[in-house]
Design a binder for these strands. Structure first.
Lengths: 343, 343
DNA sequence: CTGAAAGCGCTTACAG
DNA sequence: CTGAAAGCGCTTACAG
C-alpha cells in the first residue's frame, strides 16, 4: 500500500462552500477558465463567458480573496491604526482613505491602538500577520522593537499626524511643536498675556502643550498654567477644566484646548459663569470640527487637513505597491488657525 | 523529459519574506514543530522551544495569518459595516466590538457603507470574499439579492440598530418606530403640542420621524412639520433647520432632532434669537452623545446602549463560530429618554 | 517529543 | 480560446 493511498492526513475543511471547482464543473470548463472569467474576461469567448456567469450566479459563488491574496502575495488590504474610531478628529482622514483606496481597488481595515502607539508586539504581529499592502500609523513609532518589526516586514508604511527625523518608511509630517507655538503667538497678538492650556495626556497633545508653554515664556509672558486630562478629551472635561484652572488662583485670559470638544466645554462653562468670550477669556481649540464654525460664539481652532492626509497616504501606498518609489518619502502637511469669534 | 522537470509553471512570489520553512531550517527542526511552537507550545520540549524561539526572533518571523486562515477556514476576522466611521453615534458599539472581539481572539475590520444599506453587490462581495468569521450590519438588509448572497455565504450575521420580522440570521433589535412615538409622547406630556421634527434623510432617521408624526396625530395634535436634511446631520444643519422651520410660518414649541449634533445646533440658534429653551422651545436629540449631558442647557436625548450592542454582537458571533446556536437569535435592545434641561 | 504529506482555494506561464 | 500542474504559507491526524 503506497503512502499516497492513505486516508487524507487532514480532515477536510467544512464543505458546502462553493469554490472555483464547483463552478467549473457546473459550467463544463476548467478552473482556469473560471478564474479568467473573473479576472481577465476579455480572454474568454462570449459563449463561455455566458455559461460561466450563469454557473456563478446559480451557485452564488463569491471568490475567496484570501486564497487569491496568498497566491499573489497581494492582499489588496490597507490597515490604518487610529487611537480611537470614536473621536472625530481622524474622521476626515478615514473617509478620504476609504474613498481613495477604494478607487484604487484596496479595502481599508481600521484598527484601534489606544492613545499611545502600542509598545507591545501583539497588535503589530496581528497586523503584519495579515500581510496588508500598506499600513498607515497615526503618530510615529518610537519603540525600537516595533520599528524593526515593521521595517523587516517590508510593508509600505506611512506615519502621520506627527513628525520625526527618522521615519520608518514614509511620513506625512504634522508638527505639533509648530502648532503649539503658533497658538501662543496668536493669543499674544490678540493681547492675551495670561495664557493657560488644557491638554489631553496623549503624546501629541503634550507636544502641542509643551511648545505652547515654551513659546509663551519666550514671548516674555508668565509661565502658562498647564492641566493634563485623560484622552480622549470631552466637553465635560472642558467645563471642569476651566473650573480647575480657576481654582489654581491664577488669572487667565487665554486658553488653548487641545481638542474642540474641550474648547466647547470651556466656552459653555465661561458663559454659564457670565464670563465674556473672547473679551475676558479667549479660547482656541484643535481639530476644527464641523461644529466649531457653527457654535455661538464660533470657535477659533487649529485646522489640519485630514482629508489631504488620507488621500496622500493612499497615493503613496498605491505607488509603492506598484513598485514605484514616491517622489518624496516625507511630505509636510501644515496647518492653519481658523480665526473665529472665540479668540 | 518528464512533465515535472519543467521549469515551474509560475514565477515564484517575491522572496525574501521569512516563512516557517526558513525558521525550521535555522532551528534544525521540521515546519510542523515550528507551527507547534507557535500554536501548541505545551507539545514541544523546552530545549526545542528555546531553539525555535531563537530562530523566530533572529529572523523576525511573523506567521502569515491568511495562510493559516485558508488552511483552517477560520479568518479570526469580524467585519462591521457602519454608515460612517465619522459620526460618533456608533462609537460606543465599535469600541465594545473591538474589545469584546479582541478578548476572544478576533480582529475587527470596520467598513463604511454610506447612509443606506448598499444595494449593489460590490461591497458585499468584497466582504464575503474575505471570509470573515462574522459580520455586523448597521441596519437591516432589504435587498433580496443582498440577503440571499449573505445567507448563502454561511457567515454568522448580526443585523442591528433597526428591526425586522425577517432577519437574515441574528438580530439586535432597535425600534425606531417606538422611539419616535415615545419622543412625541414625552413632549406632549411636557405640554408641548405644536411639534416639529428635523430629520436626517437616512432610513432609520426617517422611521423615527414618521412614527413621531403619526403619534402626534394620534394624540390629537396638529400634524408636525417635518424637515428632511442630508445625513450625516450637523450642528450647522440644526441652526439652519430651526430658521427653515420658522420660515414655514408654523408656530412650534417642541422639536425632535434625529441627532444630538442637530439638537445642539437648534439650541444654539434658539439662544442666539433669545428664545427660551425649553420654555418657548423644547428640544430633544438622539444618540445621547457625551456632550449632551454637559452642555448648557443640557440636552434631553434618546439613549440607545451601543456598548451593549457591540458586546452582545461579539458574543453571538463567537458562539456561532464555536458551533453553538445562541440562546436567542433575536434580542431586544431598547432605549430610554435621558431627561435633561432642554425638554 | 518529532516529522511527511496532503490540502485550504486560488492564479499564471506555457502548450496546444 | 482553453487547459494541467505547481505552488502561495500554513496546519493536523497519524506514525514512530
Amino acid at each position: 500500500m503506497s503512502a499516497s493511498s492513505r486516508k487524507p492526513a487532514v480532515a477536510p475543511a467544512p464543505r458546502g462552500r462553493v469554490t472555483v471547482r464547483e463552478v467549473a464543473k457546473a459550467a463544463g470548463v476548467s478552473m482556469i477558465t473560471v478564474s479568467r472569467v473573473i479576472n481577465t474576461p476579455q480572454q474568454v469567448s462570449p459563449a463561455t463567458l455566458e455559461r460561466v456567469h450563469a454557473a456563478i450566479d446559480a451557485l452564488g459563488y463569491v471568490p475567496n480573496l484570501m486564497a487569491g491574496a496568498l497566491r499573489l502575495s497581494r492582499s489588496h488590504l490597507v490597515m490604518v491604526l487610529v487611537p480611537s474610531v470614536a473621536g472625530s478628529l481622524f474622521a476626515g482622514m478615514l473617509t478620504a482613505l476609504t474613498e481613495s483606496l477604494g478607487a484604487k481597488g484596496y479595502q481599508l481595515m481600521v484598527g484601534q491602538s489606544g492613545y499611545d502607539m502600542p509598545r507591545e508586539d501583539a497588535l503589530l504581529r496581528a497586523i503584519i500577520g495579515r500581510r496588508p499592502d500598506g499600513l498607515v500609523l497615526t503618530g510615529v513609532m518610537h519603540s525600537p522593537q516595533g520599528r524593526q518589526l515593521l521595517q523587516a516586514s517590508g510593508i509600505p508604511i506611512v506615519e502621520t499626524w506627527d513628525t520625526t527625523a527618522t521615519p520608518i518608511d514614509m511620513l506625512l509630517s504634522v508638527s505639533h511643536q509648530e502648532i503649539g507655538a503658533a497658538v501662543s503667538r496668536y493669543l499674544f497678538e490678540a493681547g492675551k498675556t495670561r495664557q493657560a492650556v488644557l491638554s489631553g495626556d496623549d503624546e501629541r497633545a503634550r507636544l502641542r502643550a509643551d511648545s505652547y508653554v515654551r513659546t509663551a515664556i519666550e514671548l516674555g509672558l508668565p509661565e502658562p498654567v498647564v492641566l493634563h486630562l485623560p484622552a480622549p478629551t470631552t466637553h465635560a472635561q472642558g467645563r471642569e477644566g476651566l473650573r480647575a484652572l480657576q481654582r489654581t488662583g491664577r488669572d487667565v485670559d487665554g486658553v488653548f484646548c487641545t481638542s474642540d470638544l474641550m474648547a466647547a466645554g470651556v466656552i459653555t462653562e465661561a458663559m454659564a459663569q457670565g464670563l465674556a468670550v473672547p473679551g475676558q477669556l479667549a479660547v482656541i481649540g484643535f481639530g476644527d470640527m464641523d461644529f466649531a464654525a457653527s457654535m455661538s460664539p464660533s470657535i477659533t481652532s487649529v485646522h489640519v487637513d485630514g482629508a489631504a492626509i488620507g488621500a496622500k497616504a493612499a497615493e503613496m501606498i498605491a505607488a509603492r505597491a506598484n513598485g514605484q518609489r514616491p517622489a518624496k518619502a516625507v511630505v509636510e502637511i501644515g496647518f492653519r488657525i481658523a480665526a473665529r469669534e472665540s479668540a
